[in-house]
Design a protein around this nucleic acid. Structure first.
Lengths: 144, 144
DNA sequence: TCAATATACTTACTTAGGTAAGTATTATGA
DNA sequence: TCATAATACTTACCTAAGTAAGTATATTGA
């Protein structure tokens, strides 16, 4: 990565994960696991496909992370009507903890963003969204 | 990761790595390996510590990546005056290829950023830099 | 001087994510 | 109907990066 912008994005991504993990340590969780718990809290029971589509990762990533969440008693996978699907939901333990964790993580993120005004945060988001795949060059955008 | 800003940063970080890897595939390289080659091209021979400090990663990460670069004939590690240190440099093969790779990667990155004006790119950089470790809250900043 | 400490790097183990290929189930079309 | 194709998930293998602990060399201070 040599454009300084991408370098900086990569750095901040790693920093955020590191700091979130520091908070999650107390719950024996990691950032990727938390992202799934948060997802389930927000949307209720979901198939694995719905999870990886929402998080924009590949299917195997979710399979692996869910295996750990299941082992550690945060999530459950049940057979769906379509037997290929597995319906994922939070366990009782998770239900009782997720709100507390969310609060802690939100506070951390607000701290990390405390150097930016609300306006700047929105600006930042807007600018990030303009970064696109190189497969989609200027011409392609016309076909939206 | 639940603040949408951090989610977006994480997504773009992964997207950039994925696309850079696509270009590097042709050279049998990966993004982390390229970041070290680029570093050596820019600064000349360096110790491993200088590399991991510049890239802001941990020492073991550089050890591992260099082992692969050495195996595949892109980098060399020589003993320094201080025998604890290993002085890293590019091989002849690397010297002859690095400029070409840099051009390809730069073009890709420009494509990905083509939706942003020069001004917006600088804005984005400035905003990213304002994201800080939560260990450094507002009060701490005073002590700079 | 030389024992204690610090430094540079490595090793072992873990999470996170990607691709490719495999399995089981469902949907489709001749 | 039933062979073929598509879908949902899993498995195996790879890169990337972190922490903790280990090794070898260099530095420091009593």
């Amino acid at each position: 990565m040599e454009n300084l912008l991408f370098h900086e994005i990569h750095q901040k991504s790693r920093l955020a994960i590191k700091e979130v993990n520091e908070v999650l340590k107390e719950y024996n969780l990691y950032s990727a696991q938390w992202s799934i718990l948060f997802c389930l809290k927000q949307f209720g029971p979901m198939t694995q496909k719905e999870i990886w589509q929402y998080l924009n990762v590949e299917a195997p990533t979710v399979t692996r992370t869910l295996s750990k969440l299941e082992e550690s008693g945060w999530a459950e996978r049940n057979e769906g009507a379509d037997k290929r699907q597995r319906i994922v939901c939070l366990t009782a333990k998770a239900e009782s903890k997720v709100a507390e964790i969310e609060e802690r993580v939100t506070m951390l993120e607000e701290d990390m963003l405390s150097g930016l005004s609300q306006d700047e945060q929105q600006q930042l988001m807007g600018l990030l969204k303009k970064i696109q795949s190189a497969a989609r060059t200027e011409k392609d955008v016309e076909n939206d």
